[in-house]
């Protein structure tokens, strides 16, 4: 194998409910593959040190920093990006709708990561306390909103989702 160009990885995984196959290089991150190869640009790149959460996607339902998650590790796993949250009939996920209703974003750069991080929380803990929301979301930065509207949106989404479950 050439020292400069390590072998390509044949990567297959489930992306937003559909199987995908793509070749990637071993050092490529999941965000590079999603954004560069698969044209899913919802995951944003900001701090690149796993502090800000803008690049958050879900791998097997857990939030990861796609900017620092090697793409090959998604092999055989299920990846959810912000593009996968809308329903087939284009209805928004309750978290997305609540973010709109509560003005929980301004520039929008943190928003895909915020929403996915919130989804991971609510799928795991449908009725979180404020402290639990804050603890879970503490690794997602937002420079615009002062967080309070985001907290309200997540609270409201929990209630909406609970009601939908009946």
């Amino acid at each position: 194998m050439s020292k400069d160009r390590p072998a390509l990885v044949e990567l297959r995984f489930e992306l937003n409910g559909k199987d995908v196959a793509v070749e990637c290089e071993p050092q490529q991150t999941l965000s590079e593959v999603l954004r560069g190869r698969l044209n899913l640009t919802g995951a944003k790149i900001s701090c690149e040190v796993q502090v800000c959460g803008a690049c958050t996607v879900l791998v097997d339902a857990l939030p990861v920093s796609s900017c620092t998650y090697l793409a090959y590790e998604a092999q055989g796993r299920s990846v959810t990006t912000i593009e996968g949250l809308e329903g087939r009939d284009r209805t928004l996920h309750p978290i997305q709708q609540c973010f709109i209703d509560e003005f929980a974003f301004q520039c929008g750069f943190c928003t895909p990561g915020m929403i996915l991080s919130a989804k991971a929380l609510l799928d795991d803990n449908p009725d979180p306390t404020d402290d639990e929301i804050i603890h879970h979301m503490d690794g997602n930065l937002c420079r615009c909103t002062g967080y309070v509207p985001i907290l309200k949106a997540i609270r409201k989404a929990a209630a909406v989702m609970k009601e939908a479950r009946g």
């Binding site: 796993q50 502090v51 958050t56 791998v59 857990l62 939030p63 990861v64 920093s65 690794g139």
Partner: peptide, 12 residues
């Protein structure tokens, strides 16, 4: 462990 770094670091 519940307070190491953030939720994404703890997941990986």
């Amino acid at each position: 462990e519940a307070n190491v770094a953030n939720v994404r670091v703890r997941a990986t």
